[in-house]
Design a protein around this nucleic acid. Structure first.
Lengths: 214, 214
DNA sequence: GTTGTGAGTGCACAGGTGTTCACCGAACGG
DNA sequence: CCGTTCGGTGAACACCTGTGCACTCACAAC
């Protein structure tokens, strides 16, 4: 065994093969960190899974923590793809909430490993990883806040109120995503979680619409 | 060195000394798991911190996971103490929300390690620990739901709606607690988080009061 | 065609890991 | 007082850990 592709592989440039094993390392790390978390992940474990010798790991990452940061990037690529789908809603769904929750459940199911990685390492990962995740989530909040500002009926709102509401929504969505992860693909449980999420989003919106009127 | 109390300690019954080192083990584990998490915690590490030989660990727990479950119990003793304080509000605070948020910040600051343990192991811990935490949080939700049911104005609500709202509130509180943990005692940041939490709780309550009226 | 680069190898080291076993000796119950 | 219980000991085990070093040798560049 000599990595993902044997060195004598034809028609593959050297940088291509390097990128290939790099991706293999990321995949292996993502899978292995599911049990025990990133900080309990060993370099040798990853190397064995990929099919390379432990020292070869250093050709790609200088430490597990650096690997973790790369995984954060990967995971948030998935998450931003989801946000894009939320913003361009399926025309068959009239209701923004229904379509958003639907997009959420589908993405969580499809990118299960990425989402559970974020949920796990958000508080358990190495400090740098935690900071990176926290930063990315903050960005999502800001994006949501500007989206909300474009909605009708928020004219009288202060910027402060907007970010507060955005934070509330993001937290609810994060919690829902985490519940969906626990549901782990059981459709009936997923549907119950989705139902609850829809009700909660409606409650929050009703609260938001009646804001400033007290 | 021979554990927390030297064996020849006077005026201490044997079970007392056993309970003492048991608590020392729990304390050490709580502190050490702060960096790396429970699943990256080693028995020998804990033993060294306590001042005990590794094998003596087994006199108290049969595995790290069992230790983890004991820690969950400890942590939720702290959390339930907080809930008790929330329910019997300080008479100097007229507003339930203000007093609740105040109680939350104070408890999170005082029991920082317990709360961060829960936040961390909720998704990163061994499966049994995760399940135990999840179960405890569900209990809190149910308690809150019955509390809400006693409040005026919720007569027309279905049980389903009550648990959904309770879940929403608990999630917001959990998220706030986690933000307070990140604030890590910096008063100004804490106050900002508390301020946001108060606004959010008000938004949710307004949404709840206008529920069923659409 | 020669040369240099660099991903992957193999070995070695010094440490840390969980768990076993026989053992000690102080506190306990009779 | 004497026998038992049991928390703590210390050595030993087989294994896993990160990392250093000299090495190969297919590829890329000239």
């Amino acid at each position: 065994m000599a990595g993902v592709t044997t060195p004598g592989d034809p028609a593959l440039t050297r940088v291509e093969r390097k990128e290939l094993t790099r991706q293999s390392i990321l995949d292996a790390a993502l899978g292995l960190s599911a049990t025990g978390g990133l900080s309990a992940l060993s370099l040798r474990q990853v190397a064995k899974e990929v099919g390379i010798v432990p020292t070869a790991f250093y050709r790609h990452f200088s430490s597990i923590e650096e690997l973790g940061l790369a995984l954060v990037d990967d995971a948030f690529v998935s998450l931003r793809a989801m946000l894009r789908d939320v913003r361009s809603p399926d025309p068959t769904f009239r209701d923004i909430i229904d379509s958003s929750v639907r997009v959420l459940t589908e993405h969580v199911r499809a990118q299960h490993e990425h989402f559970s990685f974020i949920a796990r390492e958000r508080f358990a990962g190495p400090p740098a990883v935690r900071a990176a995740i926290r930063h990315e989530i903050e960005l999502c909040e800001r994006e949501l806040a500007t989206d909300l500002a474009r909605l009708p009926g928020t004219d009288a709102w202060s910027g402060d109120d907007l970010t507060v509401l955005a934070n509330l929504i993001v937290n609810a969505v994060v919690a829902t995503a985490e519940d969906l992860l626990v549901a782990a693909g059981r459709r009936s449980t997923e549907e119950a979680v989705a139902h609850r999420a829809r009700l909660q989003l409606r409650m929050m919106i009703i609260g938001a619409l009646n804001w400033r009127s007290d």
